[in-house]
Design a protein around this nucleic acid. Structure first.
Lengths: 131, 131
DNA sequence: CTGTATCCTATTTGATACTG
DNA sequence: CAGTATCAAATAGGATACAG
């Protein structure tokens, strides 16, 4: 990458271009339950009821909404079997699986970041006092 | 990691443990403007007004709110200079900088994912028709 | 079993005006 | 310059009941 003056419009545009994909990606994993669902599906396909059981605090409404959103974003694949009683299975798409290692890194970062923060908190009390 | 039966509660707990850090991390980068700000700060410290100029569509209110949230999350450091007129500079913390490469990967994934989706869309029209 | 429909609350964001 | 204050709009999320 050649050097660009930091004041040039082009320089700023390069940054924005990069942003857009990140923001697009972030919008796909946004939502209270998306990552939770993602995580459970990394180990394989699951039925609606199985997901519900693994995430006891989610309501059926939210599970449906989130799964629909993830389906729309091509993160999960929904397979309906024409049986009685109905059976519907959810699994990560190829893209969804490719996201997993990145999310794992994000988790690692989160773990370390949390540690660092706690370590700092025990030294400096001004934040607590400010409350 | 030793093998655990997939039906055991422990197995599910392991997944949940992993989730938590991810969700914690996600909550820190959530918000309409967080990633945009993050991105601009990767190239160095910026003043309030400079950020505002680089993100023309953000309101001062939102810029303030997001920066405060990111400060609270220890992603950015805020430095106030006792000058007239006032000068305040924002920069990524060490943790914030460590997040950058992960966000870059997320952006790469987003770019590819977007491509894949568009390619699929041009072949299959049922989704468009369903609308 | 796998969802929908309805109603309601909480949180987030935006518009605009004002301040030390 | 770097914010606050206030009000309004939009969006996300939850509780509950019901349906194919």
């Amino acid at each position: 990458m050649s050097k660009i003056k930091e004041t040039s419009t082009n320089f700023e545009n390069k940054i924005f271009l990069n942003e857009c994909d990140q923001i697009f990606a972030a919008s796909l994993i946004a939502g209270q339950w998306t990552l939770v669902i993602c995580c459970h599906l990394t180990t394989g396909k699951l039925r609606f009821g199985e997901l519900k059981k693994r995430i006891p605090t989610i309501t059926e409404r939210m599970l449906t909404l989130q799964l629909r959103k993830m389906e729309e974003g091509d993160l999960v694949k929904r397979t309906v079997y024409a049986e009685v009683p109905p059976r519907v299975e959810y699994e990560l798409t190829k893209s969804g699986q490719e996201l997993s290692p990145i999310l794992k890194q994000l988790g690692e970062w989160g773990k370390n970041h949390r540690k660092t923060r706690n370590a700092e908190k025990s030294c400096t009390t001004h934040k607590v006092l400010a409350q």
